[in-house]
Amino acid sequence: MRISVSVDGTVYEDDVEPRTLLVHWLRQGIGKVGTVVGCDTSNCGACTVLLDGRSVKSCSVLAVQADGSTVTTIQGLSTGEEWHPVQTAFKECHGLQCGYCTPGMVMSTVDLLSENPSPSEAEIREGLEGNLCRCTGYHNIVKSVAYAAELMGGGSR
């Protein structure tokens, strides 16, 4: 089936099998390998991208369902040497170790802060419940999100 999807600012047209998951199309179809797969049960959230501005698990969307939509991946969050404040905050607060969950964590954080610019610690923790990390124990991820909120002018409660 023919689809047309805008990904990180470029419109891609492609023929895909209906069974193709959005994450597989991103990775193998158009080489957006910054978005990764961590599970097959929708638990880990590593594949989180923004679909028309909202966070979704790209393993749980068919590529054909994204037809006509806009996708933002970790690779489209900032350009070149520029850093998105969420990326800056994760580095500054050591919010990542192996980095495999990071694309999903960062994209979920972008969504979380767009909805709630000044989240409390509890709201941060609940807001990230769809993303698993095995390295950090979440302590520094939570700090990163609070710091990102601060950088973006919201601040954490």
């Binding site: 957006k32 797969v37 580095k91 990071t102 694309p103």
Partner: peptide
């Protein structure tokens, strides 16, 4: 962190 935070990581897959 720079590459990990920008999706420029070289995972085996």
């Amino acid at each position: 962190d720079a590459k990990l935070l920008h999706g420029r990581t070289n995972w085996t897959d």
